[in-house]
Nucleic acid binder design. Structure first.
Lengths: 210, 210
DNA sequence: CTCTTGATGGTATGTTTGTACCATAAAAGA
DNA sequence: TCTTTTATGGTACAAACATACCATCAAGAG
């Protein structure tokens, strides 16, 4: 047998090249050739490790989903321990706002995949679509915990607030991606809304009408 | 001279065909041929009325922006007159939630263009990017009017609330587009948040901390 | 009646794409 | 030493694409 190469490392290298190329030229402009050039390998090698372009794209999407999950968990962990629900929620939602270049790349390509998944049947049933559903349940639980701890108004509808937060986070992230807003601006707006949802220890500061 | 055809009508017909094809197969899959087939004309005709593919895509984007502006104005008008700021804001923001098939098509293709504009220099400086900026100013004015009328808390930061509303609307609309949520669900969440912002005639029901 | 001109169809062309095929170096096992 | 297998390069090929070119039909102008 020859050199015996670590396949997973090679695949990761090629996938990273694809992500760079997609972030620079757009996902639609990604070709086998451009990925090969970006990765500094021959087209034949890309074929060798991913056989077909469709599988390369699928593998990239999978890695994207895994990495974003990791990033979210890292943020929660970085928020310290024990962490108040409010800080956990903030950490999770702020991950959707692209700040560093890696984050920007991830969200841009991820969004391109999401739009693609509406019309592409091969992408429609992909696991990355489960993320928002899981995230919603997670946020509901955190909100409920905050309510029990007296950090959030107990009259709030946790589910509706969770859906709202998810929408805010996605909408702000998208606007930053489209260069309509700075990341700092988006962060400030998100924090502003969180401050309203979590007024602190004071109970029932805000009495809803219904 | 021969038949003498209404060019604008022909162009609109071809653009509509492109929109249908893009909503069905994805904007990336749109070709001169597919547009021609969808419109029921020859490829040569598409060339004749739009010369190049890039110009066809640009014309489609322009029409999209115009039509969406019209739809928003129609909604505001349909809300009756005189209209309370709260109802105007609701009408404007709900337009971002795709309900009927036309609306879904518009938002899907529009989103595809938006993602494309990040990497495509020809699309980056297009007028459709101005819309969010204008919309933000419009919302700020409406919120300020509501505050003066006593329909909204005068302590609210109108600008931050406007940015937040825009993000909510975009985020909810996107989630409906991606089939993560129903349009009814998104509408309910948006209304729920509006009810918090516009508690009605009661002043200072909700006292912010800062 | 001719001639010009707008509207249309068909086809050719050069380029790019994904992929299949052929070849080879090299290292491990026989 | 001689396979056998893994990793790699180069190239060939059919399909699809945007676009340029050539041809034609028909209706109003002269």
């Amino acid at each position: 047998m020859p050199k015996l190469v670590d396949h997973e490392e090679r695949r990761a290298h090629i996938i990273d090249a694809l992500l760079r190329a997609a972030a620079r030229d757009g996902l639609h402009a990604v070709t086998m050739r451009s990925v090969a050039v970006e990765a500094g390998v021959s087209v034949r090698l890309v074929q060798y490790y991913f056989d077909t372009k469709e599988q390369l794209l699928l593998a990239t999407l999978e890695r994207l989903a895994v990495r974003m999950g990791e990033r979210v968990r890292d943020r929660v962990r970085a928020a310290g321990s024990p962490t108040a629900p409010r800080d956990i929620v903030e950490a999770v939602l702020l991950e959707a706002v692209p700040t560093d270049e890696e984050s920007r790349t991830f969200h841009l390509v991820y969004t391109a995949y999401a739009v693609l998944s509406v019309t592409d049947p091969a992408l429609a049933g992909q696991p990355f679509l489960k993320a928002p559903g899981e995230m919603e349940d997670f946020l509901i639980a955190q909100l409920a915990a905050a309510q029990r701890a007296g950090d959030a108004d107990p009259h709030l509808d946790a589910r509706q607030e969770a859906v709202l937060l998810l929408a805010v986070s996605a909408g702000l992230g998208l606007s930053v991606l489209l260069n309509q807003r700075t990341a700092d601006d988006a962060t400030a707006v998100l924090r502003h809304h969180l401050a309203r949802l979590f007024p602190g220890g004071v109970k029932s500061l805000c009495t809803p009408l219904g």
